[in-house]
Design a protein around this nucleic acid. Sequence first.
RNA 1: GGCGGCAUAGCCAAGUGGCCUAAGGCGACGGAUUGCAAAUCCGUUAUCCCCGGUUCGAGUCCGGGUGCCGCCUCCA
Length: 473
Amino acid sequence: MTLKVYNTLTRAKETFKPLQEGEVRMYNCGPTVYNIQHIGNFRAFLFADLLRRWLEASGYAVRQVMNITDVGHLTDDEHDEGEDKIEAMARRSGKDPWAISRQYTDKFLEDMGQLGVREPEARPRATDYVEPMAKMVEELIEKDFAYQVGGNVYFDVTRFENYGKLSGNRQEDLEAGARIAINDEKRNPADFALWKSDPAHLMKWETSFGPDGFPGWHAECTVMAIELLGESIDIHTGGEDNIFPHHECEIAQSEAWTGKPFATYWMHTKFLQVDGGKMSKSLGNVYTLDDVLGRGFTARQLRFALLRGHYRQPLNFTWDTMVAARSALEGLDDTVQRLRELAEGKGGDLAPEDGSELVAQARATFTQGLDDDLNVPRALPGLFALRPAVLEHRLGSRAAAEALDFLCLANEVLGVLDMDECFIDEQVEELIEARQQARAAQDFAEADRIRGELEACGIVLEDGPEGVRWRRC
RNA sequence: GGCGGCAUAGCCAAGUGGCCUAAGGCGACGGAUUGCAAAUCCGUUAUCCCCGGUUCGAGUCCGGGUGCCGCCUCCA
């Protein structure tokens, strides 16, 4: 019963051991708020949430920080080289960059809320840490890891011998495919910007490097992680695209700066695919939460659809998988309701403890799955195993209560079940009774009319041998 | 050109060399049940991308194809 996680740094699954007993310090790379976040972005954030929840369920006190990048993230378009993403959007839309980032930050937080993502301990914004970032850059220059050319400051990768240890890239190989024009200011093509100056930039700060500067992208994560969590943290997460250059550069500047290991475990989520391929604007399949809601699905269903694959495997999103997610969750929600009835003793003549071993087994399946590098698809059969157990009347009242207990725990981790008790008001109950009378009187037209009426209110009736069941749809 | 990952049923997706004659979810089809419907129950639905190799034994390891995905200076 120990958690194992795959560490990108060592390319191996390792037994998880925090630096401080019982406490986990985790930094998650968050969104760049220059545009609305899409379901691909959500995959990484939902993974961070899952990891945090599983660590908590495993008894750790988790200190979780997820940044919001609201400055300094340069685009790399061949046409508008070096423009800040947020600024680019500001120019395009004619808005103030601060307004852009505020607008999309708000939208992001709203989406996270709808997706059931728990608030981390902190969501620092890069613009609130510009001063300490500048200070770090100054110190890196002092330590001779960085050099200044005019108002720009670059990190000299040749001064950090482990540069490349995360991504496996070798400095001499990086030159080959350079997508970007060679920057003459740099000593080595692989050097990365710690600080940039540009009078035309809209978001700029006055520092010792000049009056019109802004921080390089990598600086923020190092500074905010270290300020909020300490010089050495346990876990650092992000999308697979962050491995290089972002996390490679973070390691270099952090460890050069502090002289200590930055993060023990680096965990990266694979990209989400759509219709078996990459998402792209030209294919029109870059979906947002609103697109998903607009198709009649819920945020909870999306959460399940994105969480149900293993985070290190590519996951394919299609509308069919949303339909499958909806059906699967309906089955689980129904299982919860039925377990409640069983736990209350409406289960017939089974001994209370009958089926307990089944529940224990389901729980073990779930735990083993998540302990194995957060393998949700291995854990899920633990939940689904309860359904046939319920329907085939194999659980006594005590076992049903245990099953509910387990589902509560599982839901603390997955956050996809509807554990709310379903209530209906008296009026609805009267309608159901009226329909029963109509059926008894063979007045099926009236019975069907009432059923239709209820269905319009979102209540589905099911006539079974033991009477009428109802559920919300 | 360099680095890394993936390829399992109609769809999604586990599988950590030997109870894999391959989990689980969704769907489809046949049957039972039902006033109808829904739900439920029973049954059916996989030459594990291709070709070689290692091994007593490979979906699982190795090599080569093919296809897809990510990164190579700032996209989760």
